[in-house]
Write a protein that binds this DNA or RNA. Sequence first.
DNA 1: AAGTTAATGTTATACAATTACAATGCGCCG
DNA 2: CGGCGCATTGTAATTGTATAACATTAACTT
Lengths: 164, 164
Amino acid sequence: MNAVNPAFAGSHDHRSCISHALGAAERLCASQGLRLTAIRRRVLELIWRSHRPSGAYELLGQLSAEGHKPSPPTVYRALDFLVAHGLVHKVSSRNAYVGCMHAGQDHVAQIFICDGCSLAFEQADGALDRRIRRNARDLHFHIREQTVEIAGLCPDCAETGRDD
Amino acid sequence: MNAVNPAFAGSHDHRSCISHALGAAERLCASQGLRLTAIRRRVLELIWRSHRPSGAYELLGQLSAEGHKPSPPTVYRALDFLVAHGLVHKVSSRNAYVGCMHAGQDHVAQIFICDGCSLAFEQADGALDRRIRRNARDLHFHIREQTVEIAGLCPDCAETGRDD
DNA sequence: AAGTTAATGTTATACAATTACAATGCGCCG
DNA sequence: CGGCGCATTGTAATTGTATAACATTAACTT
């Protein structure tokens, strides 16, 4: 797993990232009877423009630039939908949103975010998840959600000395 | 480690929590040549009033109530100081701050936060930390900071069915 | 005492998120 | 077809969170 790292690895065919993500979203919505409406789809596409987490108002700005001019609740509702159905992850430490690389796969994600270039990479280490669940069990704590975010420097930025 | 859970365990002598935290802060500042100024100390005390993460504007309100009337940057600067020196942890998933239970002990914390009563409990599982560090190393990622937050229900709230 | 740096004060603003309510679209059933 | 019910979107206002930029004060150094 995680043999190659699409986000941190040198270059990758990002077009296929996008189409893969959109395809997965469509399949997931179809299979679960969910509606991937125009805004939801558009927000998902915008988020997938890159592997950098997007802020809600950044997305709002991009939608406005297209003439669409939605207001905050519209964007937040789309984001809520996408997050709720596992198509997008919220990056709490940045108040931003990034496309999920394992949509529809039932996983717990850990997200690495580079302080230099802002690229994010998602990992799904089951052993890590289990360790956290075990710790919770020992505390008699019932987990609803895990937030695991690791900030630092990606290989590129570490090498070139970029640090913010 | 973590034999007893001061936050989730039934009652505990919170007065000693506070004095322990303040004492640790004073010792740490003394030993590192840092200045635990009046606001910084006051903010730390306010944070330690409970084991529930406090929002910056909540602290601001409490300071105002005491006649102190600081403005946001003042509080954020105090918080930045406390976080930077490991006296307080930021709980990103809640935009709030909670006292660190292992100040000066060089650890990586995982924070459990109850959706029911908002109590937070800090754990420092070294094995978990090492696992994350190992994953990072495999990705050639240089960690600056880990954010590990687990939301759910504490033993009490799980039992009484409180869920928000 | 003057110079230097850290800390705080002040004003304004940027960014993030939600509340409350209105309007619209869409499926379904009679 | 027409109308009911529900999900979705639109709109306006507000609340909450955080920072920028610059002025002032306090403390430490020589």
